[in-house]
Design a protein around this nucleic acid. Structure first.
Lengths: 173, 173
DNA sequence: TAGCTTGGTCAACGTGGTTGACCAAACCGT
DNA sequence: ACGGTTTGGTCAACCACGTTGACCAAGCTA
């Protein structure tokens, strides 16, 4: 690593030229990511202001996936599209933060129910409210039709199974 | 293709079927993320088909950020919005994969230029082509005006500095 | 009862990020 | 010319989030 590498001559290009034409395809994913991250960043800035500074970007979706009724780690992994081990580790972290709790299932000694604590329920409700406010901010800027069209268009070009809408608990509370 | 989902995206239509009030704000970030990930997944499926199975989702943007002229790890971190250490580790991985190379800067013994190898250039060009094709696929589904409107709207609601358009090398080929 | 399936956990590892510390080279003001 | 500051790169430790594979206890079923 410390050995200098000879042979590199004339890497200097004082004239920054753009040889290729514009690639519009590169912008689309960036804009989608920017829109997503803008919402997420604003959400967590506001959540931190409201006493939930510990919540990481992913956690809100996990709380949403757990839902008011609770689930198991395996089912949670299925809902989130990750392995049960990954879901279990995420649950561990949220338990340590006080957002989730594990309780034994009296009907099945293998299962351990994952439930929202009051703190977790509070965070989930606040997330929903803040997301609604952020969407309203977009509506105020773009107009309701444009935002609705944006959502409709994205729903159209997105595989239907992306959201696992078949799984109960999503987007219902 | 577009499955009409009554009440899911229209806050003006009351849907007595759902117990809780609709939280439209939750859908917006998910749809944006779904659109982004759909593009990225399709890109990498196609890249793998074209001999770039090793490229991970992030790497295309890194290659784009490096650009044809090359940069340093610090500058790369600035462009990507991460620390110079993180950028350095990402460069390490891409060097190991044969997409980037490090050469000493003869004008400044501290700097180590990061440049695309021919393999990296090939991957970058293929990414650009595939992204363009994916955007064309969206245009075929939604129409050119809707896709353009979607991009315009996202640009409007996104902080201007998100893309670091001031930094040379971005989106210029 | 025997055997398969399911839910949870542990271990090892990979990727992508962070801070803090440190060093050498470059820059700059006296 | 010297000495202090800035800059570029690296190392180390750590964290979040994901993967496979192995394993075990409990439940289900032929």
């Amino acid at each position: 690593m410390a050995t200098p590498d000879p042979g590199a001559s004339d890497p200097q290009t004082p004239d920054p030229q753009t040889p290729d034409p514009q690639r519009p395809g590169f912008l689309l994913p960036l804009l989608l990511l920017a829109g997503f991250r803008t919402l997420i960043d604003d959400l967590h800035a506001e959540l931190a202001r409201q006493g939930h500074a510990e919540l990481r970007p992913l956690h809100g979706f996990v709380l949403q996936a757990v839902g008011a009724e609770g689930t198991t780690a395996s089912e949670l992994g299925h809902r989130l599209g990750v392995s049960k081990q990954a879901a279990g580790k995420t649950v561990d972290r949220l338990v340590a933060l006080g957002y989730l709790e594990r309780v034994d299932d009296p009907h099945d000694a293998r299962r351990k129910l994952v439930r929202l604590t009051p703190h977790g329920l509070d965070g989930l409700h606040r997330s929903a409210v803040i997301f609604d406010e952020l969407r309203q901010r977009w509506v105020a800027i773009l107009g309701a039709e444009r935002v609705a069209a944006l959502e409709d268009d994205l729903r159209t070009v997105t595989p239907a199974n992306w959201f696992r809408l078949d799984v109960p608990g999503w987007f219902a509370g």
